[in-house]
Design a protein around this nucleic acid. Structure first.
Lengths: 334, 334
DNA sequence: GGTACTTTTTACATCGTTGGAACAACGTTG
DNA sequence: CAACGTTGTTCCAACGATGTAAAAAGTACC
């Protein structure tokens, strides 16, 4: 059924290795033979057996990408970009979902052998330092997004603290004084960083910090954002602005405000984080921190590429990719 | 660096095959030896080389999933479910993106060898019958969603015609008489089916069909939906309801209506298709056709599983998975 | 002790590919 | 024409695992 080098060789009347040489673009093959081999290749429709090739070469041709859930827009978008970036460099991408749970993250991490994939991009959510295998078995690992833990591993992300500060400063610059936040979650490193940025922007603007204005969120989903927003608006003195730790929370918050008959941005201004595609089309459209996801994906794939092809020794890198504040209707922009 | 069977065998003082037997749960191994091997396995942290194992077994442990783009919510959600369903049965999923272009789809399809993956789930958008390899090289293929072309291949989808008719009948039942549609695209089979459903619902309701009320859409993206809606509303006698061929178009349409100062559903009722998560949170929330995506993913993985494990001969199946009309605010629901 | 049978282990070939070395053919040069 | 370098081809081993068959060890019985 399947065509192997041997079949092609027989048909072309040369040795297996010569066919292999043609397939791999080896220069010194007599034109006559090359022609014959190429004809035979075409005639048989030969396709290399990737498994065997990789067994021989010690490569697999696969990268793993570990994310919480593809159904979350941010990860869907990011995964798409990673796949595209990886494809450019000849890799296929294998996706593992962890649902953001620590146990699944740990499990996934330890199941990634160097046989299975050449390298892995991991976007943890709940992992702690001790979860990282002391020796990943020589498997190049690049951590995405989260820099929760103090592990000597390559890392690519935006500056979460600065980005959060930028978002909140924007709200302050509009004259808002009771600026709330939604998304506190001690188990997530990202949350602490965005919270830190929030606090530092408040301080900078001369506003006082109040625990009561920081709503927790176990999952950063739309429904959670809506519930949190309702709780905030039920406070004796409700906020006049909210910084949501991601766009989903913000979309939920938008809806909650509308359901209570209030207006965005007049009564409450809202800023999100991630710049999901949907956020440009919500009503009102959402002001948000827009990480350069393409840059993130490219940098991560590039880094793992470098680690795989040679550079095993240089110290772990910490790459920061750019972001921008995208001002839209939810804070009075057009 | 990497531990092989041979290393384990040396350490345990037995042959390679005995270790292999232990690893694979072969019954006849002396308890004493089994213990020694298991200790050695634990001590070395042995992990089988999947590539080598599969080379020998003729399996790869991978399924391919071909979709247009993961950044499109429908495909992000679907891919997540497929991965989960595949994982249950011991497969990892490899994702290929085609951007919905025929050339990339064809290319991807032909690059999927049986060496690379055990089976493939493909969600084509622009493929035509002639693009399908006469002989997929024994690779089990299951087509998702689209049933554009008349190819004898396993297929899982909802009844697009019926679903579209359901959506449009709902609009008609609200008393709307000028019901438009957005999403016509002759290159896409799905489009024809939904258009057919639209026409049949109109006929059933005693409404006449007009080409002018059917807006084309090259890409089914939000911005396209917005532009199409604006065009429709600029007509001499604009529609009082719109059936969008997917939720993204509908979200764009919602926005266009709002920008023109009109109201949904009072001035224009809108129905979408896909039930993206975001559609439950838009303002107003979106009435939409909700395919049971979990059922779809499960059925597809199940089918490819059956094909891989034996059943190569029975005729191509055509499985229909359920859907429901989700009535929300954009047509006056709560 | 020998035969027949069962259980356990081993050696060897094999999956499809590529790297390396050996070999063959060739034209050039002294 | 012998020696040589260059070019092209082939043979063999190897990647890490498993199937097969045969060898080895153990058991039971006469």
């Amino acid at each position: 059924m399947t065509v192997t080098l041997k079949d092609v060789a027989t048909l072309a009347g040369v040795s297996v290795k010569t066919v292999s040489n043609v397939v791999n673009g080896y220069a010194f093959v007599k034109p006559e033979n090359r022609r014959r081999v190429e004809e035979a290749l075409a005639a048989t429709g030969y396709r290399p057996n990737v498994g065997a090739r990789n067994l021989r070469r010690g490569r697999t041709g696969f990268l793993a990408l570990m994310v919480p859930e593809l159904s979350i827009p941010y990860f869907g978008e990011l995964a798409g970009l990673v796949i595209t970036a990886a494809q450019k460099r000849g890799w296929s991408v294998l996706i593992e979902q962890t649902q953001g749970t620590r146990s699944r993250e740990r499990e996934t991490l330890s199941s990634l052998g160097p046989h299975l994939v050449d390298g892995a991009l991991v976007h943890p959510e709940a992992l702690e330092a001790t979860d990282f295998p002391a020796d990943p078995g020589g498997l190049p690992l690049v951590m995405l997004g989260e820099h929760a833990v103090d592990v000597p591993i390559d890392h690519v992300a935006i500056d979460n603290v600065l980005a959060a500060r930028t978002a909140v400063s924007h709200l302050a610059s509009l004259g808002r004084t009771r600026i709330a936040a939604i998304g506190r979650n001690p188990a997530r490193g990202t949350s602490s960083q965005r919270l830190a940025g929030y606090r530092s922007a408040l301080a900078e603007a001369g506003l006082s910090y109040s625990d009561g204005l920081v709503a927790p969120a176990e999952k950063w989903h739309r429904s959670v954002g809506a519930a949190a927003m309702k709780a905030l608006l039920a406070l004796p003195s409700p906020p006049d602005a909210v910084f949501c730790f991601n766009d989903l929370l913000a979309i939920g918050a938008l809806r909650a405000v509308a359901e209570l008959g209030l207006r965005v941005p007049e009564d409450v201004a809202i800023v999100g984080f991630d710049n999901n595609e949907e956020s440009a089309f919500s009503l009102p459209s959402l002001t948000t921190i827009a990480p350069d996801k393409t840059a993130l994906a490219e940098a991560a794939v590039d880094l793992v590429h470098r680690r795989i092809t040679g550079d095993k020794t240089s110290p772990p890198q910490d790459i920061q990719t750019p972001f921008a504040l995208e001002i839209r209707e939810s804070t009075g922009g057009r």
